[in-house]
Nucleic acid binder design. Structure first.
Lengths: 335, 335
DNA sequence: CGCTATGATGTAAACGATTACAGCAAGTGC
DNA sequence: GCACTTGCTGTAATCGTTTACATCATAGCG
């Protein structure tokens, strides 16, 4: 392996000069610079980043904790993060946690091992140990930010949309179409994001003076299969809703499948609204009405926050809210 | 930060002993071991992996080059890789290349920088510079393996399915249903994988003495949108096929959407077969007949190959072929 | 001319671990 | 009692960089 020493010898300068030429070229005379650059080129020298990171005591890597990498929703967020990160010479280390807390901790541990400089979390858990009831950021934590989800108690820097308003908008769309009997397949109950969507759902129903039928409230796990299952259950009820709101598109697509299997025609017998606007939403049958989230921008913004924190800045605002948009397609119609 | 030195002082031993206790406990007396472990626990010492990796001259990290992280097909492969990797204390660094060769090279470059020990590539390009026409592995390359795709000329250790046979099976299924006019939306032309599927298609057609209509051969880019577009083009033809084979499920789902928009009823007017068996395939309308690939196993096997190479073994077989399976659902019917 | 400021370069000490080698005590065999 | 082995521990070199500090030449200035 060719090291900085070899380059120094080849160029007839000291290793300090080589290092400076590469890192701060302006501090080196033009003549020397040329010599060094030539030596670098002819020797095929590549900086040993492992050695550099070790010496600099940072890794230029950020861990991104993803609840489920196979969920296309997260893929676009990750792409946004990646884009901003690579612009600043940062790497992304992806941790697919599958909602597993011990796996989250294991990845976060990489920061204490100096394998990563910060943690971005797309799930709802804080991957560091902390006392229940804590209400502030622990100063011992490394740079840490969340996206999509946020934490209920601790003011972690976060990028998300206004889930209350977004859910309410989806419901209002159904109400405007004349629906009164609206079911809701939400995600897991212990998530702030789902709580918000539930809140938006209730607020919109209440504002329209519509009752919420608790039998029409289901809880899935964001998978196609869980959407199918929840819909099946809804369809066994003697009194059926005429419309359905789902906390993500995959559950909505699963639910529509269940409707078709039950010989309902869509959207006439059941209006369905999803959430996220993943690529498949525009290719389902019928095309899914859903709430679009600016996934790429969410990723970009949270990484920008992270970069700022890594640069030593204190996050000015702890919550950045990006705009969402209801996309009306064909899965909803007047009652 | 607490280092090995602090632990040594606390336990009243040398740093070498601490290091040994942690890495090779059997080489240390029980009494010392207890002292050291206690010191580790009470000081909260965590190994600085950056320092260790630097000294050991490896990173315990493997780069995985993914053509498109948002493609759910790859997500499952990655999960398989991850599972095997973490079992052996290896990390995965995901590179979303978007088919961009310079980005592939940038990621592969991490190996020369000692940020990674090996490269697994899920796309069709070799991310290292090499002379066109080369027919052998370059001994200068780091441990390198491919999955799904393989290289046409260079015998890179690879895990994949038999794409020729799988495509032929899909076509035979259509032929058995009585179809004679079969279209094929393939992926990009310059890929061995797609060439194989094309070959399987042609072989099956020829075996059944059916002509291949070149107007019914389209080339997409594996996205929903490209499937839609290709189908639109097929539908403008005066003579239409009665069946369609697509090189992946997303294009198949896009194509089915185009059929519906053209008022064809599925599967009666158009039988469609996809490829990959992603989760959405079972939730499309109609449910998609497709070729299942053992995605998790592909990932697991290629990572096992990689681990073997990292351990210094020469790969015994350069090509591991895993079984595929035709999954017949509702998108195909007799003509 | 002498003094200081400036800029370019070199010297050498880190960074935190691993590990070859040496040293030492206790045990073993003759 | 001696030589040798065995098991445990410590000393110190080492990995490839970065960077504080020292050095030195040159220029600028009064």
């Amino acid at each position: 392996m060719v090291t900085i020493k070899d380059v120094a010898k080849l160029a007839g300068v000291s290793i300090a000069t080589v290092s400076r030429t590469l890192a701060e070229p302006h501090k080196v005379s033009e003549k020397t610079r040329d010599k060094v650059m030539e030596a670098v080129a002819s020797s095929g020298y590549v900086t040993n980043t492992l050695a550099r990171n070790f010496r600099r005591r940072r890794s230029n890597t950020v861990v991104v904790l993803v609840p489920d990498i196979a969920n296309p929703f997260f893929a676009n967020i990750i792409q946004g993060i990646e884009r901003v990160a690579s612009r600043s010479q940062y790497r992304i280390l992806l941790g697919d946690t599958q909602g597993n807390e011990s796996s989250e901790h294991a990845y976060a541990e990489l920061v204490s091992q100096r394998q990563a400089d910060g943690v971005i979390c797309l799930g709802r858990n804080i991957p560091f140990p902390y006392r229940k009831g804590r209400k502030t950021l622990d100063p011992d934590w490394p740079p840490f930010a969340m996206a999509c989800e946020y934490h209920g108690e601790i003011p972690v820097p976060t990028v998300c949309i206004d889930n209350v308003a977004a859910a309410a908008e989806a419901i209002n769309h159904l109400i405007e179409l004349g629906h009164r009997d609206i079911a809701f397949i939400n995600g897991p109950a212990d998530s702030p994001l789902c709580d918000d969507r539930m809140l938006g759902f209730r607020q919109a129903m209440q504002a329209a003076q519509l009752p919420v039928n608790s039998r029409w409230l289901k809880s899935g796990d964001f998978t196609l299969a869980s959407g199918y299952r929840c819909m099946e259950e809804l369809l066994t009820l003697s009194r059926r809703p005429t419309a359905l709101f789902c906390a993500n598109d995959e559950m909505a697509i699963g639910a529509m499948q269940a409707c078709r299997d039950a010989e309902l025609s869509l959207p006439e017998d059941m209006s369905v609204v999803g959430f996220d606007d993943i690529a498949f939403a525009a290719y389902s049958h019928p095309r899914l009405t859903t709430v679009n989230q600016p996934r790429n921008r969410i990723g970009e913004q949270v990484m920008k926050m992270m970069l700022a924190m890594l640069a030593g800045e204190n996050p000015t605002e702890s919550r950045l809210v990006l705009p969402h948009e209801l996309v009306v397609r064909e899965s909803t119609c007047a009652v």
